[in-house]
């Protein structure tokens, strides 16, 4: 038993340690990938934020990520309601269609988009990347939303209705707030999925709307630009935030409801 626990601790360290290498590297003074760093400074951060070859893709990735999250939620939320709350002919085929983007390798889709978007003149455009990323994000968002919807107790909506709430009010005051954490997480997953997506961006974003992963990938391949460590650290910080955000959302919601209480003076 203790042996298993020791093993688990060792494996956890194996998982965590490489991630921790990234941050000190970004403060390194060495122009190459030297670890441990010979000295510390913030010069690479200055370089990162002064270089349009890095800031441009960073901004692009944020724009594309937000657009992808919005578009994903716009189609995935209604589709999730259809799947969970209704039985209709073709339901399982619909479910399969929504899930396949998870199975199809990105490199295959990269080729498909390269040719298809070439014809539609969507290569090297924000719209093209957003459309492609949304396809990959839909199943991820759907999994989160449908799971939350399945766990949603329908009698809550019935209770609200019996208490006098009209359907839209029920959605606004009961369904939506209860599912909000799942929606936030689903949207966040869609954003992160887009923000991290490398392969399709690599082939279709071109120089004009290059994403951060594309820029990173190319600089890995071309030259070992130490500024990559800054990009990596920023992405790692974002991941750290991603792990902490859901807990934060919960506490904020509670505070808001307390303020709304009829007992509050």
């Amino acid at each position: 038993m203790t042996l298993v626990r020791l093993g688990a601790i060792a494996i956890t360290i194996f998982l965590a340690a490489p991630l921790l290498v990234v941050v000190p590297m970004s403060f390194s003074t060495a122009p190459s990938l030297q670890f441990p760093p010979p000295g510390l400074w913030v010069g690479f951060y200055a370089k990162f934020f002064a270089d349009p070859n890095w800031t441009g893709p960073l901004v692009n990735s944020i724009i594309i990520g937000i657009a992808t999250a919005v578009l994903t939620m716009a189609v995935a939320v209604p589709a999730s309601f259809a799947l969970v709350r209704h039985r209709f002919p073709g339901r399982s085929a619909f479910n399969l269609l929504l899930m396949t983007p998870l199975i199809v390798p990105h490199i295959v889709m990269a080729l498909g988009y390269y040719v298809y978007f070439g014809e539609l003149r969507l290569l090297q455009s924000y719209l093209g990347v957003v459309l492609a990323h949304t396809c990959f994000s839909i199943p991820v968002a759907m999994l989160i939303i449908t799971a939350a919807l399945k766990g949603f107790d329908l009698s809550l909506e019935r209770a609200a209705m019996s208490l006098g709430a009209r359907p839209l009010t029920v959605f606004r005051l009961v369904t939506m707030p209860i599912l909000a954490p799942a929606f936030v997480i689903a949207g966040l997953f869609a954003f992160v999925h887009s923000f991290d997506e490398t392969v399709v961006s690599l082939f279709i974003s071109g120089r004009d709307v290059a994403t951060l992963p594309r820029q990173m990938f190319n600089s890995f391949r071309m030259e070992a630009d130490p500024v990559i460590s800054v990009a990596s650290s920023l992405l790692f910080a974002a991941a750290l935030a991603g792990v902490l955000v859901p807990a934060a959302v919960r506490s904020v919601r509670r505070t808001l409801d307390r303020r709304n209480s009829p007992l509050a003076s």
Binding site: P18, L19, L33, D196, S232
Partner: peptide, 12 residues
């Protein structure tokens, strides 16, 4: 939640 590219960088 950490990008594959970041993890790739770490291994590099």
């Amino acid at each position: 939640w950490t990008s594959y590219l970041v993890r790739t960088y770490a291994w590099m």
